[in-house]
């Protein structure tokens, strides 16, 4: 795969991932390669950032290793086949359910049915520990963020923003349209695997 690596300040490299590849899959491949000098790898919607141990690291040797890995394959794809599906039970009674239905010109029960029916995948995590941006949802449910973010959204709130669904792992400020809630624990730092959702995880919302 032919991509450009650009420095992102003194201690990170930025990779724009072509449409044909999946940013989460590319980030996972870089993480699993355990390249010397890399402290972390993080993916977004279509960008992957490689964090270097410190600006003292010879970033040229890291760049060389990263480039070699990227060139080793034509494209990076996720492999949902064989992946365990994480089921998240939801009660659909969120404060923005009516507003979402109105915006999408659907009935509330239609919104619930459509949200329920889709199979999702974690495109990337961000915003807060354990917060996964879930893609694969029904296109008819695309909604803007709230014009005024709430100062506090309870843990377990299930929301929509743009093409994404997401679950707030902990209480905090938030601008997503809240349609329901879950009792699932999304993040527990004391567990060996702290996050229920990781980039690539397949998710279904169940009753």
């Amino acid at each position: 795969m032919d991509v450009v690596l650009t420095p992102l300040g003194p201690a990170a490299l930025r990779i724009e991932v072509p449409q044909s590849s999946d940013a989460a899959a590319l980030a996972a491949a870089l993480r699993e390669a355990r390249i010397d000098g890399i402290s972390d790898v993080s993916g977004g919607e279509s960008v992957v950032v490689v964090y270097l141990n410190s600006s003292m690291v010879q970033s040229e040797s890291v760049q060389h290793s990263v480039t070699a890995l990227l060139e080793s394959t034509d494209r990076f794809e996720c492999s949902p086949a064989g992946e365990q599906v994480v089921e998240i039970p939801v009660v659909y009674d969120g404060a923005d359910l009516d507003a979402v239905a109105k915006h999408c010109a659907l009935s509330v029960s239609d919104v619930i049915a459509r949200h329920h029916a889709a199979q999702y995948r974690v495109a990337f995590c961000g915003f807060a520990p354990g917060f996964g941006y879930l893609t694969g949802g029904d296109q008819a449910l695309a909604v803007p963020r709230r014009s005024r973010p709430r100062t506090s959204v309870p843990a377990g709130s299930v929301g929509l923003a743009g093409v994404y669904s997401g679950v707030y792992p902990s209480e905090g400020p938030g601008g997503w349209q809240i349609i329901g809630r879950t009792n699932s624990v999304l993040f527990d730092a004391s567990l060996p695997e702290p996050s229920l959702l990781r980039p690539g995880t397949v998710v279904r919302f169940v009753s």
């Binding site: 993480r31 995590c125 702290p194």
Partner: peptide, 10 residues
Amino acid sequence: LGYAHLGVGP
């Protein structure tokens, strides 16, 4: 370090 992919900053 090492948890950015789970949404955990440094």
